[in-house]
Design a binder for these strands. Structure first.
Length: 405
RNA sequence: GUGGGUGUAGCUCAGGUGGUUAGAGCACCAGAUUGUGGCUCUGGGGGUCGCCGGUUCGAGUCCGGUCAUCCACCCCA
């Protein structure tokens, strides 16, 4: 038997129904915040991710589905969504057009990792990206948008925020940190590697010995420049005013290189070790880094598989089940179903069955109405209808049946 | 890449120390005297016991290998 590849899974009913329901609600909320839908290719030039996500990240370092296509292009299946949207933003010269551009997207991402709970090689994200708005109010709005989506599904979470500084305050801090790290030779091997590649990432090392050492390390939050500090304060003020509970996590650094200033993560218990359900932040330098005009930007992504694990979905009864009690009535319900299908969802049973069997089938398939034609109905040109939710039944002329919503 | 757990019916799982036609619950289909769903009862269909090899008169059971899957490390959505 041919099976799906490791870490790839099919999404079939009823999960697929839940998936669509999530997309519908999340899209609606994103639109309420002024975002428009954007779709970008799943395949991009490898260079795009090397230059955005960064060489020091695990994603670029070891998780990309990378290959050479038949035209000799070095390409990858996108491991995350932001880079492609930024590429598109620049390619279509929206950076030169000016103004604010807000996009939401959803779709498959690919990372070659060992699968585990909440982690797949092909997974799906719903994300938003906002370009051209430097105000910290936008950071606040973006966090509120993510929160609104989680709240829509009554998902319990805790919100962690941090500031990663800007080109003014981050480099001097990095130097101090590296200096500190060089004076401590007992940090783990991973951290020694990080020290040279991307020193900030040592801060969220899980190794207890390292964590013990880092309690003495210089803190980025103590080294923010005036503007970064002010904005981080303003962000907290905004969140507090909106009644959003949050926790400052000075070790929240995130594994992608492009973040600046605001970084945030929504975590939820009940997801196992992979507890981040949404994450994002500001990336003011990325557009420029990829060859566009300097443009401030901020965004986030939600892990769809993870969020689907966190809420229940009961599809509601919908549509009409049509069944015949004897062979002579089958042509009639077939014709009736075709007409009815111009406006409504119709589940049609071709085999004549007992009334009991039809009701059972209609119930199981979650139809709202069981509509049956037998000898009596055929001679009187009517349809017997039972509302399976209200448990009410009636016999109506065929014309009236076709009018029903 | 590393570690641990698990592979028996569509699903969840039983199957002491090897022994005849491999079981249950759920699900599915059909019935329970006249055309009424969810509950109950009866019956039915459905399994190369992950795969390969070894030990044995005999392997679902023991041994080796292999594959798959889950969880964790790591990292992140």
């Amino acid at each position: 038997m041919i099976k799906a590849l490791r870490g790839m899974r099919d999404i079939l009913p009823p999960l697929s129904q839940k998936y669509l329901y999530f997309l519908q609600e999340a899209s609606r909320i994103a639109r309420n915040y002024g975002f428009e839908y954007i779709q970008t290719p799943l395949l991009e030039e490898t260079q795009l991710f090397r230059r955005s996500v960064g060489e020091s990240s695990d994603i670029v370092g070891k998780e990309m589905y990378q290959f050479t296509d038949k035209g000799g292009n070095d390409v990858v299946l996108r491991p995350e969504g932001t880079a492609g949207v930024v590429r598109s933003f620049i390619e279509h010269k929206l950076d030169r057009q000016g103004g604010v551009h807000r996009f939401y997207y959803h779709g498959s991402m690919f990372r070659y990792e060992r699968p585990q709970k909440g982690r797949f090689r092909q997974f799906h994200q719903f994300g938003v990206e906002s370009f051209g708005e430097a105000s910290v109010y936008e950071d606040g709005a973006i966090i509120l948008l993510a929160k609104a989506i989680l709240d829509r599904f009554s998902i319990p979470y805790s919100l962690k925020i941090n500031s990663l500084g800007c080109p003014t305050c981050l480099p001097p801090y990095k130097e101090r940190l590296v200096e500190f790290l060089r004076s401590h030779d007992d940090i783990c091997d991973d951290c020694k590697r990080r020290r040279d590649l991307n020193p900030i990432r040592v801060l969220d090392c899980k190794n207890p010995t390292c964590q013990q050492i880092y309690t003495q390390a210089p803190k980025l939050l103590d080294h923010l420049c005036g503007q970064c500090e002010e904005e981080f304060g303003k962000l907290q003020e905004l969140l507090t005013a909106q009644g959003v509970a949050y926790e400052i996590d000075p070790n929240l650094v995130r594994g992608l290189d492009y973040y600046t200033k605001t970084a945030f993560e929504f975590v939820s218990s009940g997801l196992g070790a992979q507890n981040a359900v949404a994450g994002g932040g500001r990336y003011d330098r990325l557009v420029e880094q990829l060859g566009g005009k300097p443009t401030p930007a901020v965004g986030f992504a939600i892990g769809i598989e993870r969020i689907l694990d966190l809420f229940e979905y009961e599809p509601k009864r919908e549509g009409f089940y049509l069944g015949a009690l004897d062979e002579e009535c089958v042509d009639e319900i077939f014709d009736l179903a075709t007409k009815k299908r111009a406006r409504s969802r119709v589940l049609l049973e071709y085999r004549p069955k007992s009334l009991k069997a039809h009701l059972k089938a209609a119930d199981r398939q979650k139809a709202r109405y069981a509509c049956i034609i037998g000898e009596n109905e055929r001679s009187s040109k009517t349809v017997w209808i039972k509302d399976l939710e209200r448990k009410e039944e009636k016999v109506v002329p065929k014309e009236q049946f076709l009018e029903m919503e």
